[in-house]
Write a protein that binds this DNA or RNA. Sequence first.
DNA 1: ACTAACCTGTAA
DNA 2: TTACAGGTTAGT
Length: 273
Amino acid sequence: MPELPEVETIRRTLIEHVKDLKIEGIKLIWPSAVCGWEDKAFEDLVTGRRIRTIDRRGKYLLIRLDEDLTLIAHMRMTGRLNYYPDLREPEKHTHVVFRLEHGEVHFSDVRKFGRIQAIPTPLCFSGSSLGKLGPEPLEADFTPAVLKDRFGKKKVFLKAALLDQTVLAGMGNIYVDESLFLAGLSPDRRVDTLSEEEFSKLHQAIQSVLQAGIDAQGTSFRDYRDANGEKGMFEEDLQVYGRGGKPCHVCGQTLERVRLAGRTTVYCARCQR
DNA sequence: ACTAACCTGTAA
DNA sequence: TTACAGGTTAGT
């Protein structure tokens, strides 16, 4: 579920509650949600440390604890990290409970795809798939030239290239489709056919769609919620995602719904070339 | 470069 | 009952 704007929103809403709080205990309700350690070892490793900061890289959250320990969390499709100021019973799909000095953080995930990994901070990038991620699309050093360079000699569809986390970190099915609409580019264009002007338009579209997503606190098309359990507002601004068969907001033509790179893809055949 | 697998829930 | 869902990875 969560793509870059949703993960960033979780990061922001979580850290304001948990900064510098000590983790006093862990409850592993479904231990498979935690990887890299035996249950007891994970509990011992994490218990007693304080949460200092939370970083984000692509769709990964990096929860930095004392003494160079990092919890790498990925929500995949339906994962949530909820902060509660009080103690409460875990819900049906809650897999891990972090008991803090004040309140609790619950990791929940209906589909059980999400994972939390504990890793010494210096090993973060070598010891996980984080090391292979492409650039951060909202950082200042991400330019049209960098985008072109990341596509390299590939000949794949734009849709596939933008979903590839090693090309660019953080885009998923919603924001790829929205970016391509805003850029006026068809998802089945091959990446090696773009002009300089089209690279610029795509770069601009990616940055403005992702920033708008963050500003709206994410898209709650289905399950997504932030750390306070709040929905995001970006669904109201979606131009194509989830709108297959409906009229294009710009030209009125019926939006196409096809399968590309294994994912449902919606676009306007008139506005996107 | 596509498909299956990992899971559960919801809607058609 | 079947298809499909904001993701990733491992297999043809």
